[in-house]
Simulated scan of single mutants.
Amino acid sequence: MEVGMAHSTAATAEQLLDLRRANSARCAEVIRATGQMTIAQIAEVTRLSRPTVTARLQDLQDAGLVVEISADAPQGAGRPATRYAFVADAGIVAGLELGKHVERLIFTDLLGRELWHGQRPVTIHHADDRLADAAAWVRTSAESLGKKLVRVGVAVPGAMDPAGIFVESAAFTEWRGRAVPPIVRAAFPVPVDVLHDVASAMLAEQRMGAAVDVSTFVVPILWHRVSAGIVVSGRVHGGTTGRAGNLHQRSDLRAADAYAADDLEWPSDPEVSSLVAAEAAGDTAAASSLDRFSALAADQIAMLQLVIDPEIIVLHGPLAIHDALVTRVVERLEDSLPVVAPVVVSEFGQFGTVIGAALTALDGAAEDLIGPGMAPHLLDRTLLSPAIGGHAPARV
């Protein structure tokens, strides 16, 4: 049955427009998923009438989102059937991560195919100036690709309450107590989605990473301190104040004699890489430092295991790339708890957060350009760089 067939003849112009957009989205969705389709094939899959499909394809062509391609050779009498394809480069989206020490950027076309990714160290520390510089980086990078930027997803670090007010942020101290989404959106000439960096990493895992088909999981972030994202029954749980998962804020752990004060604000890579290398060379002090941090991280993750009882624990963050740390964390968890969920390291390396931002931008771009009803987007992992989680095409 076609969307909206039950609407009365008194439907308003706005309702009719919504109906057209919804049917356009259905047509675009099946073409995007399949590659090339005829009107008859689209009508069969969507269960829309052929006249409706024809009209909606014209709308999509007028918008530059669908194009006619060479017709099939006729089989028997009659004209060849025209096929339609989705125009992936009708626009591009960007995912931007404004990390404390590093900024990361990725561009994809409308089919989720990576066009470029990169990262750079943070050199500007005033919040507003840094945002303006990051927005310029996005703009000039898009221009260098020669494509039209249509939407940006921006992931920012720091605890935000449900209203988007920054409760705390070590990276953007000037924004504490302010609504962050309007600040970020004002820096860009296109629509912007703003989300917490941990929520962005969780989205990447939920859509196309270790947590696909998992409803309850946690994503501990291992870096100079430990925090975590929580998904319960498929929904991100930020808590009443947005602080859920900020494990490092326990004052009793800060004061514990078992942990040295400098372990609470541990350095990020490359300093930790140096510690790992030093331990491998026989440095007992480096080994002791790794032991202390791993014990602290494991004890905090154990809280999540006991309270959330997740199906899986996905380790993220700069320090999760070090087997010397991950092995210690897992061993301590297994020694201290009767049951531990499977622990895996994210396949996206340090780009999970920016990938989640790009996914959010893709979803928003589809609704902007086509209408509501498109399926959640994925990035094409066969075209994603191996360094950030790309997969080779499966052999047939």
Rank of each mutant, 00 (worst) to 15 (best):
I31F: 05
L48M: 15
Q36D: 13
V66G: 02
L57A: 03
R26G: 08
Q61T: 09
E29N: 15
T34I: 09
T12D: 07
L65Y: 11
A43T: 09
A13S: 10
Q15G: 00
M5G: 00
E14I: 10
S24N: 05
V30W: 05
L16Y: 02
R26I: 00
G35F: 10
A22W: 03
R47V: 09
R47Y: 05
R47K: 14
M37T: 04
D59F: 09
M37F: 06
I31W: 08
Q58F: 00
A43G: 12
I39W: 01
L48H: 12
A55H: 08
L19Y: 01
M37Q: 11
R32M: 13
V66F: 04
V3H: 13
A6Q: 12
E14T: 13
R20F: 01
N23G: 02
M5E: 14
G35H: 11
R47N: 13
V66D: 07
T46G: 04
V45L: 13
A22P: 00
T46M: 05
N23V: 10
T52M: 12
D18I: 02
L16C: 02
T34G: 14
C27H: 04
E14V: 13
A55P: 00
Q58N: 09
G64P: 08
A11I: 07
Q15C: 01
D62R: 14
L48G: 08
E44M: 10
